[in-house]
Simulated scan of single mutants.
Amino acid sequence: MIERALERFLFASRWLLAPFYVALVLGLVGLLIKTMLELLHFLPMVFSSKESDIILGILSLVDLTFTGSLVVIVIFSGYENFVSKIDANEHKDWPEWMGKIDFSGLKLKLMSSIVAISAIQLLKAFMNVGNVSDRELMWLVGIHVVFVGSGIILALTDRIAAEKH
């Protein structure tokens, strides 16, 4: 009887994660505000700036979009994996991938998004190489290589674990 009550209590504790996902939604709102500010900064310069500056502005928007997409993936996948299933039948435009990403898939999507965001930051630095110090460029390359290596190792360990099952 005590064991059953403890198990119910532990199972119900998963709902403590729900406020974390609400906080991520609020963070997504903050990211949207930052994206709109970036767009307001970017649009007036389109006609007067060099091509490289326009590309840098677009890369900033892509970077923010990737980050927002990453947050959405974490919100929905995390909620479905750890808190409660969402009834997709109630939502006509429910994306097919939602509800199918397990924790392993979530880790890989998270890592690949981080690698993509890192690659965009590196590309922005290369596009602006005249204003970036060698030291900063070296750090950006090093960090990106670490992210790529971590992603490969994570994918390999997941593949090895899947083969054992």
Rank of each mutant, 00 (worst) to 15 (best):
Y21F: 00
L24S: 01
V25I: 14
L28A: 12
L31T: 03
L31F: 05
K34G: 12
M36E: 15
L37A: 10
E38L: 13
H41D: 13
L43W: 02
L43G: 03
P44E: 05
M45I: 13
M45G: 10
M45Y: 10
F47E: 14
S48G: 07
K50I: 11
K50G: 12
I55T: 01
G57R: 02
G57N: 00
L59D: 02
L59P: 00
S60I: 01
V62G: 04
V62P: 02
D63K: 08
D63S: 11
T65A: 11
T65V: 09
F66K: 08
T67L: 14
V71T: 03
V72A: 07
V72E: 05
V74A: 10
V74Q: 09
I75H: 00
S77A: 09
S77Y: 04
G78T: 04
Y79I: 06
F82G: 09
F82I: 11
V83W: 05
K85M: 15
D87M: 09
A88V: 11
A88W: 06
N89S: 14
E90N: 13
H91I: 15
H91Q: 12
H91N: 15
K92Q: 11
K92S: 13
K92W: 10
D93E: 11
P95V: 02
P95R: 04
P95D: 08
W97M: 12
G99Y: 01
I101L: 12
D102T: 04
F103E: 15
F103H: 11
S104E: 13
L106M: 03
L106F: 00
L108M: 09
K109Y: 07
L110S: 04
S112N: 06
S112Q: 08
S113I: 14
V115W: 01
V115R: 00
V115T: 03
A116C: 07
I117K: 01
A119C: 09
A119V: 04
Q121D: 12
Q121T: 04
Q121G: 10
L123Q: 02
L123C: 05
F126H: 07
M127S: 12
M127Y: 09
M127T: 09
N128D: 01
V129S: 06
V129Y: 05
G130R: 07
V132D: 00
S133E: 04
E136S: 10
L137V: 00
M138R: 14
W139F: 15
V141Q: 06
V141S: 09
V141T: 06
G142S: 01
V145A: 14
V145N: 13
V146C: 06
V146N: 05
F147R: 03
F147C: 10
G149M: 09
S150I: 10
I152L: 07
A155I: 06
A155P: 00
L156N: 05
L156C: 10
